[in-house]
Simulated scan of single mutants.
Amino acid sequence: MSIPSTESWGKSVQKFNKVANCAILLFFTDDQPTVKLLDYSENATYLVESRITGQKNILRVCRPDYHKKSQIESELAWMRAIDQQSPIEVPVPVSGTNGEYVQSVKLENDPREYHCTMFTFLEGQAPDENNEQELIHQFEILGEITAHLHNHSQNWQEAQTLDREPWDYETILGENPKWGRWQDGVAITPERKKLFQEVSEVIKRRLEKFGKGPDRFGLIHADLRLANLLVEDNKIKVIDFDDCGFGWYLFDLGAALSFIEHKPYVPELVKAWVKGYRKVRPLSEEEEQEIPTFIMLRRLMLISWIGSRDNETAREMGSGYTEATDALAKDYLAKFR
């Protein structure tokens, strides 16, 4: 569910800022830290810095009505397990003064409840999509990291008990998808609608054939795009597990290519990712051949997201993203129709 269209981007940010200033009092008692907005997309994230020690943390104010408290608690449980049981570096959840990891805030004259979480701060910068050679190298590392993540997901016994929603065809491209319908996206003409509909139908058939076996479908990050990776000294750290849920493992590769699927260097990124992944975890030839399906699945999903959101990323992508999908759609149909 998106923030209501009747509420402007600016007013939404003002409201989140008020929530953030209330939330820090639930995590700190004797220290009034500074609070700076870092990003506003699905949620609002803030850099919180102690005036006394200089220690940094990340505060996330969750978009109301998107996840239940129990779902957020499940997300944080997986992050803690990854931190303790795998080589992947992730932010560690920080509990509030009452010992709870999820704190709730309500504002005056606003019936909605805002769930807030705190994390340790990680150093690093997002990969640069304009640095092709560096990005290819980083995708090999990302392939290894993703394989470790999938191994942990498959071997962690508590995974199946988590309260997280599925990311499958129905929830992504079905009749009532979580991020809205691609048919309601920006710049959807009758001709484009017909083209994308055929792509969607091919995706559905291929995913049904591909199946949801335990080696292919499980708990995934589901949003490993460049903005959710931090690079420091040839090491990649993973942040923002807000959309983690149960989906195809290869969807994590489709998500890693978010917003750059049409770039000419993508085949090299995929090749590097597969190479890195196979260093850690098996990937069959059949799975490798199906990668374009997951790239297209994510691409149509992002058209839905852009059409249903009011934030800087959605505005930046706009109609150009939909228009650039035409060539990808035609190429996909030529190969898989």
Rank of each mutant, 00 (worst) to 15 (best):
P4D: 04
W9I: 15
K11W: 03
S12N: 01
V13T: 03
Q14G: 06
K18N: 02
C22Y: 14
A23I: 02
F27N: 03
F27R: 06
D31L: 07
Q32C: 09
D39M: 13
S41E: 15
E42G: 02
V48R: 11
Q55G: 07
K56V: 09
K56Q: 05
P64N: 01
K69H: 10
K69M: 08
Q71W: 08
I72E: 08
E73D: 14
A81L: 04
A81Q: 06
Q84H: 11
Q85Y: 06
S86M: 03
I88E: 07
E89F: 06
V90H: 01
V92G: 01
V94R: 03
N98W: 08
N98V: 06
Q103S: 07
Q103F: 02
Q103T: 02
S104F: 06
L107E: 04
D110K: 09
D110S: 08
E113H: 12
T117D: 10
T117F: 14
F121E: 14
E123Q: 15
E123K: 14
A126C: 14
P127F: 10
E134C: 09
H137S: 11
F139L: 04
I145E: 04
A147N: 06
L149A: 02
E158M: 12
E165N: 11
P166L: 01
G185P: 02
V186T: 15
T189W: 11
P190C: 06
L195I: 10
E198C: 12
V199N: 11
V202N: 13
L207V: 13
E208W: 12
K209I: 15
G218T: 07
D223P: 00
L226W: 05
E232Y: 06
N234T: 14
K235P: 02
F246D: 00
Y249D: 03
A255W: 01
Y265K: 10
V266Y: 11
E268T: 04
L269H: 10
K275S: 15
Y277C: 04
V280I: 15
V280H: 08
P282F: 10
E286T: 15
E286F: 12
E288D: 06
E290G: 08
I291A: 09
P292F: 11
R299V: 09
I303E: 06
S304D: 00
S304Y: 05
I306Q: 06
G307W: 01
R309S: 13
D310S: 13
A314H: 02
M317F: 05
G320K: 10
A327M: 09
F336I: 10
R337E: 09
